[in-house]
């Protein structure tokens, strides 16, 4: 476990951070990171950049809101041990459906189709009142009490989010090593050859999207508990782009990039106010995205990896290189 020290530090964070840092920065970054992980998983291993992840997360969030306590008197309340699995199942299904629609699309085509899906969902939530309550959406969506533990309190919320983040990373690592995960990577590298071998491509692609929907759903549940509300703005272009920016900042070539990007994004969002007019945050984030795309296409994670690679040969290179 080479990550054990990092995990120990993360577990000990509540001892050092005040509530603002713990909730507004650490918990928020982890939640965004989980949702972004669902994208960086697809981008890294299937080679598809999907803009539909906010939709998948949103479906989980709306499910929790609809079947949970809320203050808009829509939906009916289920116990959390029913609503949580239901939310995850629906998010997974949404992922599978997206995969089914985009199954034949690669690269920019996949971007266009998933963006159209994501934005169409945004307009649906805005127009529809019976399920999504239109513009206003749901408020007063509270995280449950589990065994007397209040998950709304900063420290339990943080620890739960951390646990979910670790679980998501472990799941991704396991999925990638499974036969299904290997097929997906083969499809990314040589789709024609995989099909020529008689391996059906549809199942693995749909499975990868479904899996990413599951991860996004976990992020979506945490997000709705964190904000205690969800509305069309939670699934609009803003969040869609935020998820993408987080992945791009972190680097689209490694799943862990999602968390690095999320931390950078949250810090930027929290402290940009001190640098620029709060209203111009979008210009700043756009410029950051543009700079990264132009100067460091592999993101911060890629920059770090390149730096390490540059430093390492001098430190200790076994003399086996040609």
């Amino acid at each position: 476990m080479k990550n054990a020290p990092l995990l120990a530090v993360l577990l000990a964070l509540p001892l050092f951070l005040n509530d603002f840092w713990l909730t507004q920065v650490a918990t928020r970054a982890l939640i965004l990171g989980i949702t972004a992980l669902s994208l960086s998983f697809l981008a890294t291993y299937l080679g598809v950049v999907s803009f539909a992840q906010a939709m998948m997360a949103g479906i989980a969030g709306y499910t929790i809101a609809y079947f949970g306590p809320n203050t808009v008197a829509i939906g009916w309340e289920l116990p959390f041990w029913l609503s949580i699995p239901l939310a995850l199942v629906l998010a997974t299904l949404a992922g599978a459906l997206t995969g089914l629609v985009a199954r034949r699309s690669r690269g920019i085509y996949a971007i266009m189709i998933t963006l159209a899906i994501g934005v169409a969902f945004f307009y649906l939530t805005r127009q529809n009142y019976s399920l999504f309550n239109g513009w206003t959406g749901f408020s007063g969506v509270r995280a449950p009490q589990v065994f007397g533990l209040n998950l709304r309190a900063p420290v339990p919320l943080y620890l739960m989010t951390l646990a979910v983040a670790v679980a998501a990373l472990v799941l991704v690592a396991g999925f990638v090593r499974s036969p299904l995960g290997l097929t997906i990577q083969a499809l990314r590298d040589a789709p024609g050859r995989v099909r020529a071998l008689g391996i059906p491509a549809l199942g693995p692609i749909v499975a990868a999207f479904a899996f990413s929907g599951f991860i996004a759903g976990a992020g979506g549940i945490l997000n709705v508990w964190y904000n205690e509300r969800i509305s069309s703005f939670s699934v609009g272009l803003g969040p869609i782009i935020d998820i993408l920016i987080i992945c791009v900042i972190g680097g689209l070539r490694h799943p862990a990039g999602a968390f690095i990007g999320a931390i950078a994004f949250v810090l930027l969002e929290t402290f940009a106010v001190d640098l620029i007019d709060r209203d111009r945050f979008n210009t700043l984030i756009g410029l950051v995205l543009l700079a990264i795309v132009m100067l460091a296409p592999n993101g911060l994670q890629g920059m770090a990896a390149a730096l390490v690679a540059r430093l390492r040969p001098r430190a200790a290179t076994p003399k086996t290189s040609i």
Binding site: V49, I108, I241, N282, T283, G286, L287, L289, V293
Partner: peptide, 23 residues
């Protein structure tokens, strides 16, 4: 400057659209 790298172009144009919309 990134002709041929479609993904990068897409991302860059997203950045441009965010900046333009905000301005």
């Amino acid at each position: 400057w990134m002709q041929g790298d479609e993904l990068r172009q897409t991302l860059a144009s997203i950045a441009i659209s965010i900046i333009m919309a905000d301005l």
